[in-house]
Simulated assay, not measured.
Amino acid sequence: MTIRRAGRDDVPAVLALLDGATEWLVERGRTGQWGTRPHSTSPHRVEQVTGFATDGGLWVGESARQEIVGAIAVGEALEYVSPPTEPELYIRLLVTDRASAGQNLGGALLDHARELARAADVRVLRVDCFAGGDQALVGYYERQGFTRDVAFAVPRVNEVDWLGQVLIQRL
């Protein structure tokens, strides 16, 4: 996989990855993380991913056939988590093609984020993820070298709170 900085033209492909991941979660009855609707139909999500591309923090991984098989967005912490207490690079989004599962695409994208942090002389990476259900995603980040920091909940109207976990990795 080759990793390159993404632009606005890559936004539809990143949204397609998110849609595919959501389909995969729904097929397994795991709707708590992202619900059931495609991200590509959410104006908020389209605006968010476009913003990641516009601010230069979106990176995509391409296969040998130049197909986008993963994406990572880095930058400042999102508004629903506690602000940093020291300089950091925040992982705002990580998604990979479910058809490519088992190829360590997510690990390679996380390695890229580590390289970006080191190049910026930053020694802390933070990320948040869904912490409901079986906490499989929390476990994934722990296997990638992150440790749990702060748990949080995002209130939602007429739905149960979205449970999240901030994880940290010192470089």
Rank of each mutant, 00 (worst) to 15 (best):
Arg45Lys: 10
Val81Trp: 06
Leu171Phe: 15
Ser100Phe: 09
Gly57Ser: 08
Glu47Asn: 09
Ala6Met: 04
Leu17Tyr: 11
Leu89Met: 11
Glu47Tyr: 02
Gly51Glu: 13
Val138Gln: 08
Gly70Phe: 05
Thr54Leu: 10
Pro155Glu: 01
Val74Gly: 01
Ala113Glu: 08
Asp111Ala: 13
Ala13Phe: 11
Trp34His: 08
Arg30Val: 02
Tyr80Trp: 15
Leu171Ser: 07
Arg8Gly: 04
Val81Met: 05
Arg8Ala: 11
Phe52Asn: 01
Ser100Val: 09
Thr36Tyr: 00
Gly61Thr: 07
Asp10Ile: 01
Val95Phe: 06
Val122His: 09
Val49Leu: 08
Gly132Tyr: 04
Ala153Thr: 11
Ala6Cys: 04
Ile3Gly: 05
Asp134His: 10
Arg45Trp: 10
Arg123Ala: 10
Arg30Phe: 05
Asn158Ser: 11
Asp97Ile: 04
Phe146Ser: 02
Met1Gln: 06
Leu110Val: 13
Val124Cys: 13
Ser100Tyr: 10
Gly107Ala: 10
Tyr141His: 05
Pro38His: 03
His112Leu: 05
His39Gly: 00
Arg148Ala: 13
Gln33Arg: 11
His39Pro: 00
Ala64Val: 13
Val127Thr: 07
Leu15Ser: 05
Thr147Asn: 05
Tyr140Asn: 03
Pro38Val: 02
Ser100His: 14
Val138Leu: 07
Thr147Gln: 12
Val166Pro: 14
Thr54Val: 13
Leu125Val: 08
Ser42Trp: 03
Glu23Phe: 07
Asp97Glu: 10
Glu76Pro: 04
Glu159Pro: 00
Thr147Arg: 15
Ile68Arg: 07
Ile72Val: 15
Leu15Gln: 06
Asp161Phe: 03
Leu167His: 08
Leu58His: 12
Asp97Trp: 07
Thr41Cys: 01
Arg123Tyr: 07
Ala119Met: 04
Ala131Ile: 06
Val122Trp: 09
Asn104His: 15
Val157Ile: 09
Gly35Phe: 05
Gly70Ile: 03
Leu167Met: 14
Gln103Met: 12
Thr96Cys: 13
Val122Cys: 12
Arg92Thr: 04
Cys129Glu: 12
Arg170Trp: 09
Ala71Ser: 14
Val14Pro: 11
Glu159Cys: 04
Gly164Trp: 09
Val127Pro: 09
Glu86Thr: 14
Val138Phe: 04
Ala120Pro: 00
Glu142Thr: 10
Gly139Val: 08
Arg30Gln: 14
Arg118Lys: 10
Thr41Val: 10
His112Cys: 04
Gln165Phe: 03
Pro38Glu: 01
Leu171Val: 10
Ala77Gly: 09
Val95Asn: 03
Arg156Gln: 14
Ser82His: 14
Ala120Arg: 14
Thr41Asp: 12
Thr36Ile: 08
Ala153Leu: 01
Arg170Glu: 09
Arg5Leu: 09
Arg28Trp: 08
Ile3Tyr: 07
Ser82Leu: 12
Tyr80Cys: 02
Leu110Ala: 06
Ser63Asp: 14
Gly56Arg: 11
Asp19Trp: 13
Ala153Ser: 13
His44Tyr: 13
Gln66Asn: 14
Leu17Asn: 13
Ala6Val: 03
Leu18Trp: 08
Leu25Gly: 02
Leu78Ile: 01
Thr2Pro: 00
Leu18Ser: 06
Ser82Pro: 13
Arg92His: 02
Phe146Asn: 01
Leu110Asn: 07
